[in-house]
Write a protein that binds this DNA or RNA. Structure first.
Lengths: 111, 111
DNA sequence: ATAAACCGTAGAGTATAGTCAATGGTCAAG
DNA sequence: CTTGACCATTGACTATACTCTACGGTTTAT
């Protein structure tokens, strides 16, 4: 699969794919042809990019996405650190909500 | 008032003061001495920096702080655009809360 | 055969709000 | 009179997640 096809299938730009690739977040990227230097992106990368997009919805950073992806590959039973990471992210989001609510209340008092 | 004194009185660093100055957020900065090139920061800047810190609590950006400060100088009756800006900021914060709450709920369902 | 569409790399730019380092000059205390 | 504390300027660096440009080579369609 060439980069354009992967871009189309995932809905992210070529540039973004190369960006992820440079960060070491993709897998099975080869250069199968001798007469050009085009790369081939394995099917697995469709799922990887979907996972990234999914995790980003919960405000995971790319660094965190990479950690989770790497861990998942390390242990076939997907769970232990994953749910810990989700719990942690949940706490963070709740703290942000709290802080914003306090700011909002202060603002309301002001107006 | 030299920069060090202003820094001490406001609790922000010299670097930050120079940063604000470059952004045109300070006033009455003169160079009253011929034998050195030390600057003199007018008393007014204490209040300016306090206003900036105050507005930042409500997540106003420096650009917005500058606009508000400039407007305030334009019209001695402080109110009209100011309260509009605060209303707008309030809506934004409430939208952020909303979004974070939705993310949180999605996360909770997931866990 | 040629133009459009694609591919690769490298490096710069975007936004925010500062912070840090280097350089050189100045002031105050002992 | 020298040491330490202060001042000014310039430019680079931080983090995040891309996006864009420039350059040159390749493939595909007409």
């Amino acid at each position: 699969m060439k980069i354009g096809e992967l871009a189309e299938k995932t809905g992210v730009s070529r540039d973004t794919i190369r960006f992820y690739e440079n960060k070491g977040m993709l897998t099975e990227v080869t250069r199968p042809f001798e007469w050009n230097n085009y790369k081939d992106y394995g099917e697995e990368n469709i799922k990887r990019i979907q996972i990234i997009k999914y995790l980003q919805r919960f405000s995971f950073t790319l660094r965190e996405c990479k950690e989770l992806i790497d861990q998942k590959n390390a242990s076939p039973d997907e769970c232990p650190n994953k749910s810990k990471a989700f719990q942690k992210k949940l706490s963070l989001i709740e703290a942000q909500i709290q802080e914003l609510q306090e700011t909002r209340d202060a603002l309301i008092k002001l107006i």
